[in-house]
Design a binder for these strands. Structure first.
Lengths: 348, 348
DNA sequence: CTGAAAGCGCTAACAA
DNA sequence: TTGTTAGCGCTTTCAG
């Protein structure tokens, strides 16, 4: 029986070398696709690799100075579709490039974020992707100093020195607000995201700009602070509906999760969506079209953002010292069932 | 400016050793918590570590024979809540144990699954978690031979030689079917999962057993083959509603995603849920309570499954050669709005 | 075109 | 209690 409490060893490069009667160096050359190897030697080595079922040991390879073919992905947390969808894009693209993924969760904890960023940079990975990181400046500095390739997703570095993939947050928010106005709404509430996150700031700015352009006066009391979480969206909406008078006829939530929270609050207040109050979100995560009523929202091309980020990252790995890129993908207003025309309150 | 296209090196264990006037071995001992180090030395080393901002290089550590403090997680795909929720459980537990996560996606491709299993076993990780793997037997053998610690989640090894964390699939399906019967349904359709997956087989068995116990004759034509995907659930339900006569009055889908597909199909046929037809799912992923009408379903404690799997895995890593464990967590019927009492068709 | 040798950063005997 | 010496499996000069 197999009870020896020992890990068995696997086939190494040296095994392959011996079995095919060449040196380790030669096997290494064949494996890394080095040109100047005699065709017959190459074939022999490749055959042996096949026969022995040799699989390269990434750690050793990367330790020795080669590529590890692994990239790190730092996410705020797991289990939500926002992160999931971006990750899927990342994953798809990585597979095409034959890279593996190391996943780290920051749990929105600044200390962890910077610890990881550090550890990752001198660890296994060839590059790092950060999804909506909280406090970039602190440790991005370190990454830059080490000239370690990284790309920010859905977040901007204030110093403008990082590779960034985001979407047109300002424009998206602007469009959503105008849409609400076209439906006749003028009392449009806004649930913000965490104000450290650039995308949240941009969306707020887009909202304000649209108000101005639509000749709607900006009302401080209609803007409430959220943090991209459903629970918080629920709480602030609750307050919004109770304390503001006259109440808003539409709520623009900074992301879909917050919008879900708002929907709960609205429903609890006995109001109907969209008859009594319209709700619009941002992101278009998969749940947006599952919830009832289906959520009208501003779509961010999340999966595509992941893909583009990988492309940029790989380019950087290929060519350290290439200038940083900043790409903004287009958002798109997705009209579903959660927004309706403004109705005067005389029906009440 | 910082344009040298070179990665800078980070602080190594040797740097710490030199700076604190001891040998590398001693630093290593301090870092690994070895007892017999003079207290003053330990303190000195720790201080230097702090000062220099030293972070251990995992690859080197694991190459040299130590633990890498990384475990591998092989998932079928990304972006859905089923995987996301389990992963969250895994993540939480791993953090407590100070482990990191390497994520691999098999995309339900048998070849990839086995390739990864191989690569992982002689790679960076100390152990492997597999979420609902497709064709275990093939490569689990290899893992076992190498005595490499691994745990299956929501899937069983037919040879009974693996650590397994699943839920009471049979019982859950049994309960759901009985519930439907209590509501008066006798024509209960069943959408299966991929038949290679053990959980799917068990659920089907639970369904059949319940029928028997409720004195409902089993009808072959009411069982249609799905594969846990929403799209497939939609397609087979469509066929089910068109071709079977008289049509079912209730559909039991093998997982929530399939149930969502069924809901689409039902709605397209102009039938109402739950008035004309009842639908019940399995899993209770977060969307289940967001969709309209809210889905009645059998809850699997997904997050908890992830946590338990990690615990078992860590125990194995601690003690190779410990006997394999098999734990089944309890499922629970969650009654929401998608199931209603059977109504005779005279209303039509 | 290929081999020998050095070394990546760390751990693990074995001495001292 | 601590240092010395070997490697772990691989890549990369540098010679041939």
């Amino acid at each position: 029986m197999n009870t020896s409490p020992e890990k068995k060893h696997s086939v190494t490069l040296m095994d392959v070398a011996r079995a095919s009667g060449v040196s380790g160096a030669t096997v290494s050359r064949v494996l890394s696709g080095y040109e100047f190897v005699k065709e017959s030697t190459r074939r022999r080595v490749l055959e042996t690799v096949e026969q022995l079922g040799y699989v390269a040991n990434l750690q050793a390879r990367s330790l020795a100075g080669g590529r590890s073919q692994v990239i790190g992905l730092l996410v705020p947390n797991l289990g939500n579709s926002y992160v999931g969808t971006i990750s899927r894009g990342v994953d798809h693209e990585l597979i095409r490039a034959n890279y593996d993924l190391m996943l780290y969760t920051s749990h929105r904890h600044p200390g962890k974020e910077s610890f990881y960023a550090n550890a990752i940079a001198n660890g296994l990975t060839d590059g790092l992707l950060l999804i909506a990181p909280l406090v970039p400046a602190t440790y991005l500095e370190v990454l830059r100093e080490q000239n370690f390739p990284y790309v920010l997703i859905d977040q901007t570095d204030t110093t403008e020195n990082s590779n960034v993939v985001e979407s047109t947050n300002w424009q998206g928010a602007y469009d959503a607000t105008c849409y609400l106005n076209q439906l006749g709404h003028t009392r449009i509430a806004f649930i913000t995201g965490a104000s450290i996150v650039r995308s949240a700031v941009d969306r707020l700015a887009g909202y304000k700009a649209a108000l101005t352009d639509c000749n709607i006066p900006f009302k401080e009391e209609l803007v409430v602070e959220g943090d991209y979480q459903q629970q918080t969206g629920y709480e602030v909406s609750k307050r919004l509906l109770q304390s503001v008078n006259p109440p808003p006829t539409a709520i623009f939530a900074c992301n879909d999760l917050s919008a879900f929270g708002a929907m709960e609050a609205v429903r609890e207040s006995g109001l109907r969506i969209p008859d009594d109050i319209s709700i619009i979100g941002f992101d278009d995560i998969p749940q947006a079209s599952l919830i009832y009523p289906k959520l009208t929202t501003v779509r961010q091309p999340l999966e595509q953002m992941g893909q583009v980020a990988v492309k940029i990252l790989l380019e950087c790995i290929e060519d350290l010292g290439r200038p940083t890129q900043h790409v903004s993908l287009k958002t798109e207003l997705v009209i579903r069932d959660s927004c309706g025309p403004y109705k005067s309150q005389n029906g009440k």
